[in-house]
Amino acid sequence: MTTPNPLAGTGPRLSSSHGEGDAWWLFRGDGERREVPFPAAPPWRRFDRTETATGDGAPFPRPYLIGPDEVQVVNAALHLRRPLLVTGQPGTGKSSLAHAIAHEMTLDRVLHWPVNSRSTLQDALYHYDAVGRLREASLRRDVDGHDVDSTEPDIGQYIRLGPLGNALVPRERPRVLLIDELDKGDVDLPNDLLTVFEEGEFTIPELARLPASRAPVHVRTDDLDETAPLTRGRVRCAEFPVVVITSNGEREFPPAFLRRCVRLDLPEPDERRLRDIVAAHLGPDALEDVDDLLQEFLARRAEGELATDQLLNAVFLRKGGVNLDAISLLQGVLHRLGGGM
């Protein structure tokens, strides 16, 4: 099926050195105010998708291409109930793999934990808003300190499970958890995860201290408007979640952590796989007259780091009638990720 490109202009073309049509010139840099219609975004940059039963957040299957050897490794992690540690260069589809698994296995929405240098294990497990609960309690007293409302604020309203905590809530079918770029976190974070991964449970101390008569407590989850009942603050999974951990290889992980993971290294796609990716995202017709872009992309990738979605960007513009011969435009789209041009 042909995918029309909204950048293709049908009106009079501007007289310029680039030769693009009027639809290209959203911004002209001439200081004049004009109301221009925005073209449709590329398929991978659309954010108006509605949640579906497939859990991937898209109204149609997202194209994801993976080799048979890599599929074998994914299945090994699923059968062993072990985290899948996915490594590879940027743009090789590490994060998208979690969504592909959720889609094909008809699992719920992917739970996402993007890791940075300040991330801690508790961030992923739960958050307790003690200040908010204290403020609510103070509002129930008048200026003389007497109780206006004798009921105690429900502590469950002030606890929200994080993505990992939500993934461990017992369910009939497991959730998919994407732990993105774990190598950007603190050096001790992988070891902190080991106990949770091995035991499949954790305890919220603020709830464990409550008397037994207060059980269960309904806490908020990482899912919108959903709660989970917890007894004495204990969260223990019935089925270990499908955990996909991505890493750009910025540093090595401890052996104890690696031993508990199934490792998948996604190779950079070759020319044939790149053509398949372009066709999957933009339609088979997108492969016409893009041989020079493919060769330019491969040559630049051999000299420095490039991501596959940069090629998709270039092809999308080319199919919209944009002349990419201008050096500045081509370098802006196919720039090396290491910072050099």
Score class of each variant (00 low, 15 high):
Asp69Asn: 07
Pro43Asp: 01
Val148Ile: 15
Leu324Asn: 01
Val71His: 01
Glu70Ser: 14
Pro63Val: 07
Arg82Thr: 05
Cys237Thr: 07
Asp56Trp: 03
Ile179Gly: 04
Arg273Ser: 11
Leu330Ser: 12
Ala137Asp: 13
Arg260Asn: 09
Asp309His: 15
Asp154Phe: 09
His335Ala: 11
Ser96Thr: 11
Asp149Lys: 07
Ala102Gln: 09
Pro4Glu: 08
Asp48Gly: 08
Val148Ser: 00
Leu182Cys: 07
Arg49Trp: 15
Asp192Thr: 10
Ala40Gln: 14
Asp149Met: 05
Arg34Leu: 02
Glu206Ala: 13
Leu84Trp: 03
Leu282Cys: 06
Gln331Gly: 00
Leu121Gln: 05
Val290Pro: 03
Gly9Asp: 15
Pro90Met: 08
Val71Thr: 09
Gly132Val: 13
Ala41His: 12
Glu250Asp: 13
Leu161Met: 10
Thr87His: 00
Pro170Gly: 07
Leu312Cys: 11
Leu337Phe: 01
Asp292Leu: 05
Arg46His: 04
Ala40Gly: 15
Asp325Asn: 12
Thr52Ser: 14
Pro90Gly: 06
Gly93Leu: 01
Thr308Ile: 08
Arg109Met: 08
Val219Met: 02
Gly11Lys: 12
Glu51Pro: 02
Asp223Val: 14
Leu97Glu: 03
Pro114Asn: 09
Glu35Lys: 12
Asn323Lys: 01
Pro255Glu: 11
Leu224Ala: 15
Trp113Asn: 00
Asp292Lys: 04
Val217Gly: 05
Ala302Met: 09
Asp183Asn: 02
Ala23Ser: 10
Thr52Trp: 07
Arg209Tyr: 00
Gly321Asp: 05
Ala124Met: 11
Val36Tyr: 07
Arg34Cys: 07
His18Glu: 10
Glu35Gln: 13
Asp154Ile: 06
Pro39Phe: 11
Thr195Lys: 12
Val235Gly: 06
Leu177Gln: 06
His281Gly: 06
Asp123Asn: 10
Asp285Ser: 14
Ile155Glu: 00
Ser119Val: 02
Val73Lys: 00
Gly156Tyr: 12
Val235Gln: 01
Gly283Ala: 04
Gly249Leu: 10
Ala53Gln: 12
Leu330His: 13
Gln331Glu: 14
Thr106Glu: 10
Glu181Asn: 11
